[in-house]
Computed example of a mutant assay.
Amino acid sequence: MTSASVDDFLGLRNRTVLITGAGGGIGRALVAAFRAAGAVVSGADQHSNTMADLDLAHRLTFDLSETGTTTNAIREFIKAKGTPDILINNAGFTRGETLDQLDGAIWDREVAINLNGAYHVTAPVVDAMSKRASGSIVFISSVNGLSHFGNPAYSAAKAGLISYVKALAVERGRYGIRANAICPGSVRTPAWDHRLQKEPGLLAKVLPHYPLGRMVTPEEVARAAVFLASPAASGITGTALAVDAGLTAGNLRFINDVLAGE
C-alpha cells in the first residue's frame, strides 16, 4: 500500500486520540504510531517530564490511584478540548510478581492503577462519547488477563479490564461506541529493567516459551492498537487480541521438553 492508501484504509487523519501512560515504552510507540497515521494525539502520564520530548497536542498529568483527581482531569480536558474520538488506556504498573511477594498494600495499589484508574479515565469519556454517538476505546490488557504467568494482582486487574471491555461493547454499542483490548506478552520496555538487573540471564529463560522465539516490540503492540481503534476495524468490538509472539497459542516449552525431548 502507498502512504495515501494506508491513510484511507485506517481513516485516522485528524482524528483526536488520548493515550494514557504516554511517556512509557509502549506509550511512546502508541504516540508515534497514531501520529504517523495522521491523528491528533494528546497524552497523559503520572509525571509531565516523561512526556516532555513527545510531540503532543495536549498533556495531562495525574496519578491513576487518585480517583477524584483522575476524573476531574479527564472532565476538564473534555470541557476544554472536546471529546476524543479515540481513547487508549495504556498506563499500567506491577511489582508483586508472585503470591509470596503479595500483600494487601501491593494488591490495592496494583488494582487501583491497572483497573480502577482505567475505569475513572474511561467513564467520563464514555459519557461524552455516548452523547456524541461515536467513539473507540482500546485497553492495553495483558496475556496475564487470559492465563496465569505471575504477577497475581496485576493479572486480576488486567482480566478485569477484559470484562470491562465486554461490558462497554455490549451496553454502549448502541451509542456507536466500540471497545476492545490488546493482550501483549512480554514486551521489552524499561519495565523489564528491574528484572534484568537482578538476573541478567533472564531473557535466555524467557524466550524459549515464545513460538516466535522473541518478545514482541512496543511498535507491534502500537500497530495493533491503531488498527483496532480505527474505522478499519469498524465491525470489531468486545474482543481481546493477543499480541504475544504465540505465547497463548500453546506451550512450546512443554512440547520441546516432554514430547520432542529437546
Rank of each mutant, 00 (worst) to 15 (best):
residue 1 M to E: 07
residue 3 S to C: 01
residue 4 A to C: 07
residue 4 A to N: 02
residue 5 S to Y: 14
residue 8 D to P: 01
residue 11 G to V: 10
residue 11 G to W: 02
residue 11 G to M: 04
residue 12 L to W: 11
residue 13 R to D: 04
residue 17 V to G: 01
residue 17 V to Y: 13
residue 20 T to C: 09
residue 22 A to E: 11
residue 23 G to W: 08
residue 25 G to L: 07
residue 30 L to A: 10
residue 31 V to G: 08
residue 33 A to Q: 08
residue 38 G to H: 15
residue 48 S to N: 03
residue 49 N to S: 15
residue 49 N to P: 02
residue 51 M to S: 02
residue 52 A to Y: 04
residue 53 D to R: 06
residue 55 D to W: 14
residue 56 L to Q: 09
residue 60 L to K: 02
residue 66 E to P: 03
residue 69 T to R: 09
residue 72 N to S: 11
residue 77 F to Q: 06
residue 78 I to N: 06
residue 78 I to L: 13
residue 78 I to R: 07
residue 83 T to F: 01
residue 85 D to P: 03
residue 86 I to V: 15
residue 86 I to D: 01
residue 86 I to R: 04
residue 87 L to I: 11
residue 88 I to Y: 05
residue 88 I to E: 06
residue 89 N to F: 00
residue 91 A to P: 12
residue 92 G to K: 07
residue 92 G to T: 11
residue 92 G to S: 14
residue 96 G to F: 06
residue 96 G to L: 07
residue 97 E to K: 12
residue 98 T to H: 10
residue 98 T to A: 12
residue 101 Q to S: 15
residue 102 L to A: 07
residue 103 D to S: 06
residue 104 G to W: 03
residue 107 W to E: 01
residue 107 W to D: 04
residue 108 D to Q: 13
residue 108 D to A: 15
residue 110 E to P: 15
residue 114 N to L: 06
residue 115 L to S: 11
residue 115 L to C: 07
residue 119 Y to E: 03
residue 121 V to S: 05
residue 122 T to E: 06
residue 124 P to K: 08
residue 124 P to S: 06
residue 125 V to D: 07
residue 128 A to R: 10
residue 128 A to Q: 11
residue 129 M to N: 09
residue 130 S to R: 09
residue 133 A to V: 10
residue 135 G to H: 01
residue 136 S to P: 09
residue 138 V to W: 00
residue 139 F to K: 00
residue 140 I to C: 04
residue 141 S to A: 13
residue 142 S to Q: 07
residue 146 L to N: 08
residue 149 F to G: 15
residue 151 N to F: 05
residue 152 P to N: 06
residue 152 P to L: 01
residue 152 P to K: 01
residue 153 A to R: 03
residue 153 A to C: 12
residue 156 A to I: 13
residue 160 G to T: 09
residue 161 L to H: 05
residue 161 L to N: 00
residue 162 I to C: 03
residue 165 V to Q: 01
residue 167 A to P: 00
residue 169 A to L: 11
residue 172 R to A: 00
residue 178 R to I: 06
residue 178 R to K: 05
residue 181 A to F: 09
residue 188 R to D: 10
residue 191 A to M: 10
residue 191 A to P: 02
residue 192 W to I: 02
residue 194 H to F: 14
residue 195 R to Y: 15
residue 196 L to M: 09
residue 198 K to C: 06
residue 198 K to Y: 14
residue 198 K to I: 10
residue 199 E to V: 14
residue 199 E to M: 14
residue 202 L to D: 14
residue 203 L to N: 09
residue 205 K to P: 12
residue 210 Y to V: 07
residue 210 Y to A: 04
residue 214 R to S: 00
residue 214 R to G: 02
residue 219 E to M: 08
residue 220 E to L: 05
residue 224 A to E: 12
residue 224 A to Q: 09
residue 225 A to P: 02
residue 225 A to W: 00
residue 226 V to N: 09
residue 228 L to A: 02
residue 228 L to M: 12
residue 231 P to K: 00
residue 237 T to N: 11
residue 239 T to Y: 02
residue 240 A to H: 11
residue 242 A to R: 04
residue 246 G to I: 01
residue 249 A to V: 13
residue 251 N to R: 08
residue 251 N to K: 03
residue 252 L to M: 15
residue 252 L to W: 10
residue 252 L to T: 13
residue 257 D to K: 11
residue 259 L to S: 11
residue 260 A to H: 04
residue 262 E to I: 10
residue 262 E to F: 02
